[in-house]
Amino acid sequence: MNNNTSTRDLHPTFLGLSSAFPKNAYLQKDLYETFGKQMYADIAALERIIRRVRVKRRHLALDPNEVLSRKVGLGERMAIFEREVQEVGGRSLEGVLHKVDRETIGSFVMASSTGYIAPTPDLLLARNHHLPSRLRRTFVGNMACNGGMNALNVALDSLMARPNERVLLNCTEFSSLHVRPEESNREQLVVHALFADASASTVMGMEPPGVGPQVLDFTSTHLYDAVDMMTWRLVDEGFRMTLSPEVPGLIDKHVDSLIGTLTARAGLSTGDIKHWAIHPGGPKIVEVLGQKYGLSDSQLRSTWHILEEYGNCASATVYLVLEDMIAQDKPQPGEYGVMLAFGPGLTMEGALLRF
Rank of each mutant, 00 (worst) to 15 (best):
M1H: 08
T13I: 08
A20M: 01
N24I: 03
N24F: 01
Y26P: 06
D30G: 06
M39F: 08
L46P: 10
R51I: 00
R54D: 00
R54I: 04
R57T: 05
L60M: 07
A61P: 15
N65D: 07
G73P: 03
R77T: 00
I80K: 11
Q86M: 13
R91S: 09
K99A: 10
K99F: 01
V100L: 02
T104K: 15
G106K: 10
G106S: 11
S107C: 09
S107D: 02
M110H: 15
A111R: 10
S113I: 01
T114C: 08
G115E: 02
G115W: 09
I117W: 09
L124F: 10
A126Y: 03
R137Q: 09
V140R: 09
V140H: 05
V140P: 14
V140A: 00
N142Q: 14
G147S: 01
L159F: 07
N164F: 10
S175L: 11
S175H: 11
S184W: 12
N185P: 07
Q188L: 05
D197R: 10
D197C: 13
S199N: 11
S199K: 08
S201E: 01
M206W: 03
M206H: 13
P209G: 11
V215G: 04
L216T: 08
S220A: 07
H222C: 14
L223G: 12
M229Q: 14
G238T: 09
F239R: 12
L243W: 00
G249S: 02
G249D: 00
H254L: 00
I259H: 10
T263I: 03
G271M: 04
D272F: 04
A277S: 09
P283K: 09
V286G: 12
V288H: 04
G290N: 13
K292C: 01
S296D: 01
S298F: 06
S298V: 07
Q299M: 02
S302N: 02
Y310G: 02
C313H: 05
S315A: 09
T317L: 03
L320F: 13
L322V: 02
E335N: 04
M339Y: 03
M339R: 01
P344L: 01
R354W: 07
F355M: 10
